[in-house]
Amino acid sequence: MNPFVRRSHLQISVLNQEEVLSSWKHKADAIVLDITDGAGLAARQQARELVRGSIAPASKGGGEVLVRISKEALFADVKAALWPGVKGIICPSLETAADVRELDEALLEAEKEHGIPRGSTEVLVLLDSGKGIWNVREIIAASSRLSTVGLEESSLYRHMEIMPDASFDPLVYAKGRIIVEAVAAKVHPIGVAHPYGIMPGFDNPQEIHRLALRGKNMGFKGAICLHPSWVEPCNRAYAPAADQIDYFKTVRATFAEAVARGTAATPYPGTTQMIDVPVDERARIMLELWEMVQSREADKASALSKAAE
């Protein structure tokens, strides 16, 4: 999959049309229309019916539109969710490659029915069982649509009979496993650092940013935002910081000078920190990511100004 920037996935219930209509204003990289939020069959049916009309308002700010469905009602949900303008489907609870293939099949049917290019819809998987985490490699490999993998921590805690406790993270192994497997397969791992994956707070932007930044430094590339207050801190955390840019440029320049002198290991000016190929390569990647982020922000700003007219 080609590199992409998707730091914030703002999740809102499609049943809450007031939120849907204002969702574009929050500058999220993606808006997740959740059709699984209501209780009972009637609410689910209503949610399915609301998806198509929610896509245009949700995307007004330049955010990509994703729809969250459930595995239990896979075919019906996909059929209701997939319309032109929907970039991808978020599906929790997949546990095997066969589950992914079933989703793939449902997507092929819906793409054909709704005139969407075959195979263009992304799949974002949220794992919520020990079996799913153990099988993450086969799940990721099961479809070229799969772009993103994360944990659905609240379900996972229930599945593993863990009592939430802010003082320690019982999912260190699970998070490490999905991050490493995802990055190895060039898929985005998403998540935040403990405890906001299981005990989220909404009114402290500094803490949201701190835990998102920690998540980024674990290897996550973005997060599901359960409230608009998460969007700005997540957009900031999952991108190179503005004050790192000069550092990366200095790394590149210093390393290039060293190579010209015949060595590929040299100290960063004024320190005993070492610059060699991986340090230079990381600086190159971060500067490229910075450019991609700037481009993404420019696209959203343009969409926002058009929507405001």
Partner: peptide, 25 residues
């Protein structure tokens, strides 16, 4: 280390253990 950090896209020297899983494996 440096290469692993580069591949993961993480900053180094951030004050917590970022490599529990790969080192454990």
């Amino acid at each position: 280390g440096y290469d692993y950090s580069m591949q993961l896209g993480v900053d180094m020297f951030v004050g917590f253990d970022q490599f529990v899983y790969p080192r454990g494996e």
